[in-house]
Design a protein around this nucleic acid. Structure first.
Lengths: 201, 201
DNA sequence: TCGTCGACCGACCGACCGGTATAATATCGT
DNA sequence: ACGATATTATACCGGTCGGTCGGTCGACGA
């Protein structure tokens, strides 16, 4: 099995294939039943590793959750930063950002669900750290809308409005099926269309 | 303590004050730590009742979750139906619906969080039942947008677009604090403003 | 005064929790 | 071939899980 995902990857530490497989399986279980309802024996069984092997690769169940969130959010974030650097026009930016996050929602549905739905399961320090990543992602959009407002394309948006609009994306993992890969461009067009209309000066 | 909530209540079965208190406390725990991570002993301790008393009022932990969701979603739904019956103009309808759900998010934050974030924790039959309630609520908005489209005020919206827009509301419990009671009208104005712009013909 | 009843308690049940200890096996550089 | 190291399985730990059970207690009707 190849050790790469389709989207760019921040290599914080080597991250073995085994650990990647464990994270994928765990994310699916967490997304399906909720972090608190999934036992380590269940993860062990689903991955095919015994508990010893499992705990050779993870430090704790909490760490596993934190790692899943961190890796996928950093991935999403680095893609967003790249889009911000490459595209200069509002419309392109909004479409590319929409396409980026919606592709993540479809292709890594379980992981994204965990990233946005299971934040409460983290202990305080880690929750704050993950919320910083959420905030950083929001910051990218904030910059897009502020730039657009400065150039007269968008009306100014306050934080409430921006967060409300982000909710469209952050809630979409609950209803966008992972069988909609082919629809990603259409979905991105719909989402970015809504953003463009909602923010029109 | 009065046995009524501020918003209209569907009286399916008597629903004692004790059970109401248990539901409120449990909803706060579920919202704070996630259904699966909250134990019945914890609920028992937080309510001040022993486990015997607790299980005198509830059939199971799963039932408790289901009851919370059902009651609050039916409440939200009946309010929405009433708005649909009373208001005829799009703008009024959108504002009133926004105000209704945002007030629920602020005033019954924990319960609403559970209603929209813990669906996965339900066993199949009950999950389907709760998802029907979600669908019914979506149906109200569908009718509003369809009526508006028929009269030329809105462009036609497909299901993806409607669900995307609903995500704004359904995700808002994660960032709207329960200290914003005074801001409810302003929030409703912002949300409905976005809807009106996003749907403009 | 008693019997009944709803509300409640806390000890207890077997099962399972997250996590560890120990040992067996696979891999690999030399 | 050898030792070292990486990876895995299994048995097991104390503790907690959801839920039950026998029983207590005060209110109330007869």
């Amino acid at each position: 099995m190849a050790a790469v995902t389709s989207r760019s990857q921040v290599q914080r530490s080597p991250l073995s294939d085994t650990k990647r497989k464990i994270m994928k399986t765990a994310a699916e279980l967490f997304a399906g039943e909720g972090y608190g309802s999934v036992g380590t024996s269940q993860i062990s069984e689903a991955t095919g590793y015994g508990k010893g092997a499992l705990y050779y690769h993870i430090r704790s169940k909490g760490d596993l959750l934190y790692d899943i969130m961190t890796i996928y959010l950093e991935d999403l974030l680095s893609e967003a930063r790249q889009i911000l650097a490459e595209k200069r026009h509002v419309k392109e930016r909004v479409y590319a950002l929409s396409e980026s996050i919606l592709r993540a929602v479809v292709e890594d549905k379980a992981e994204m669900t965990v990233c946005f739905r299971e934040v409460h399961a983290l202990e305080d320090t880690r929750r704050r750290s993950v919320l910083r990543l959420h905030g950083a992602y929001l910051g990218i959009w904030r910059q897009v809308t502020d730039d657009a407002a400065r150039e007269g394309d968008f009306r100014p948006l306050d934080n409430d409005e921006l967060k409300a609009l982000m909710g469209m994306y952050f809630y979409s993992f609950l209803w966008i099926g992972n069988d909609r890969t082919a629809d990603i461009p259409a979905l991105a067009a719909k989402f970015s269309g809504i953003i463009m209309r909602a923010c029109h000066a």
